[in-house]
Write a protein that binds this DNA or RNA. Structure first.
Length: 503
RNA sequence: GAGGGUGUAGCUCAGCUGGUAGAGCAACGGCCUUUUAAGCCGUGGGCCCUGGGUUCGAGCCCCAGCACCCUCACCA
């Protein structure tokens, strides 16, 4: 333990002194009756100075003045000031209190009053040590200047914040708010879907054949079966098997894993909501996305108008719906409908895109779309009718050859969701899989593999079905005005820490 | 994977042209029984990210590496 710095050593010494005084620095429980914010609100209403309150939390500010002190106690609801006076709490409790540090958990019992400066404060009758901290917490100081909150010495180092989220949460209240919002988003979404009668299910994370998306998987190994298993990249193929099995509406909210790059909107594991509804098509799903998302905005954020970066997003339905090729045409002036791969490649080149390594018509179109259309999609927008090459699980468009009945919802230049009228023709599906297999053979690592059991299930008959996948992390980013996915994932993926301290 | 940036005390940051390592807050000691980012006086605290090199001498210059951030590429 010679790696301890002075601050840590001092805290250990204080803990030893507490033990010498017969005080257990780690209490077993504390009988609390109040939380900080309720206590303050209640007192504002009643002004009752006789009511007894009992609170527990961390010491976040200590102002000692000899035989008395003001401290701020923070619990899960907020902060409240405590006044601790030696004459009242007694000699013994006060000596214990002298051994407290910022960050320690204490329990307080007392009565409320208002100080000269007007702050509602607990006059402590009783103080109790509940848990000693051995490491110093970063001290963030704040001052209210009118409506503005000035923060001094903010704990801002992103690396430490992400690696040691527990500190971030204690010290930066707005961080906690974001994760409370995220939790609220998920529960409200679940309630919405259940309210429509859909059933939440769980499907395998470990899959012998991965599928349902174009992506590279993580591979793992099962010892007893002595076989490779893949961490799912999507829930899709299992959920559709359940539609075959007779579920009219199923959804799953779960982690998917993709072995690909990381950046401000990609984490290797991320949360996806997938939903499948029998006897419906993609137009139904557009309506549902619009309604569900705008409901979430209203319920969680209290508005359908939400700021994101420099933009103001308006989620009020209906959202514009624009066909994929039309969007490209508007952005580039080129009508690509019915064009061959060579023609599209030539056009891409004339648009100054480097497409030498891009294989296949679908990927060429995708390049053009990502480059010229996606960056313009700020307000919630549905892009519809994607090329068939990009959509191996979507049903052919009922009117337009070469296209599928698929849409993606874009918000703030990000793809938020992906949906289609599900391909339920097993003969067509087999051909699509085989095309994917060809791409894979040509070296496309993201191409799909043929899933024979999935094809078999479809041969038993799958009803017409509308399917949807929505990224929960991105939805959380958009609703909470977070510019990085790492700000809405509690423990984002990081490289292992170098072994500075061996614990 | 490519380019740029950052890395100094528990936190936030200075550190000149290479010459013994600095501030505020926090901590410790003393005084202080209604204070509030911050009372007053005093004290301690550093593998300057790591490893090499240049130099009489490196926090600073050079080389290599590590971590994180930003942009780009791939993906949701």
């Amino acid at each position: 333990m010679d790696s301890l710095n002075d601050l840590q050593r001092q805290r250990r010494e204080k803990m030893d002194k507490l033990i010498d005084m017969g005080i257990n620095p780690y209490a077993y429980s504390f009988d609390r009756t109040h939380f900080a914010d309720d206590t303050i609100k209640e007192f504002e209403k009643t002004g009752d100075e006789t009511a007894e309150v009992s609170l527990a939390g961390r010491l976040m500010a200590i102002r000692r003045m000899g035989k008395a002190a003001f401290v701020h106690l923070m619990d899960s609801t907020g902060r409240i000031q405590i006044y601790i006076k030696k004459d009242i709490v007694g000699e013994e409790a006060y000596s214990m209190f002298k051994l407290t540090d910022l960050g320690d958990f204490v329990g307080i019992k007392g009565r409320l009053f208002r100080t000269r400066t007007g702050e509602i404060t607990v006059q402590a009758q009783h103080v109790e040590m509940l848990a000693k901290t051995l490491r110093p917490l970063p001290i963030v100081k704040e001052k209210l200047e009118g409506d503005e909150k000035l923060v001094y010495d903010a704990f801002a180092d992103k690396e430490t914040r992400y690696r040691q989220r527990y500190i971030d949460l204690v010290v930066n209240p707005e961080v906690k708010q974001i994760f409370l919002k995220r939790s609220h988003i998920i529960s409200a979404m679940r309630r919405y879907l259940e309210g429509r009668g859909y059933i939440e299910v769980e499907t395998p994370v470990l899959q012998p054949v991965y599928g349902g998306a174009l992506a590279r998987p993580f591979v793992t190994h099962h010892n007893t079966l002595d076989m490779s298993l893949y961490l799912r990249i999507a829930d899709e193929l299992y959920l559709k098997r359940l539609v075959v099995g007779g579920f009219d509406g199923v959804f799953e909210i779960a982690k998917d894993f993709r072995n690909e790059g990381m950046d401000k909107d990609h984490n290797p594991e991320f949360t996806m909501m997938e939903l499948y509804v029998a006897f419906e098509d993609y137009t139904f799903m557009m309506d549902l996305v619009e309604q569900m998302t705008s409901n979430l905005c209203q319920e969680v954020m209290g508005s359908m108008l939400l700021p994101f970066g420099d933009d103001m997003l308006d989620f009020t339905p209906p959202w514009p719906r624009k066909p994929y090729l039309k969007a490209i045409e508007e952005a580039t002036k080129y009508d690509l409908s019915g064009k061959s791969e060579d023609e599209v490649r030539a056009i891409a080149r004339s648009l100054k895109l480097n497409v030498d390594d891009v294989k296949g018509l679908g990927n060429l179109l995708d390049q053009i779309f990502s480059e010229f259309v996606e960056p313009t999609l700020i307000q919630p927008t549905f892009i519809t009718d994607f090329p068939i090459e990009l959509s191996p699980l979507a049903k052919k468009h009922r009117k337009h050859a070469g296209l599928t009945e698929r849409f993606e919802g874009f918000v703030a230049r990000m793809e938020l969701c992906n949906s289609f009228s599900e391909l339920n023709d097993p003969v067509d599906q087999r051909e699509r899989f085989e095309n994917q297999a060809k791409l894979k053979a040509q070296g496309d690592e993201e191409a799909m593999v043929v899933d024979e059991d999935y094809l078999r299930s479809m041969e038993y008959g799958m009803p017409p079905t509308a399917g949807l996948g929505m990224g929960i992390d991105r939805l959380s980013m958009i609703l909470t005005n977070s510019q990085s996915i790492r700000d809405v994932i509690l423990f984002p993926q990081m490289r292992p820490e170098r072994n500075k301290e061996n614990n």
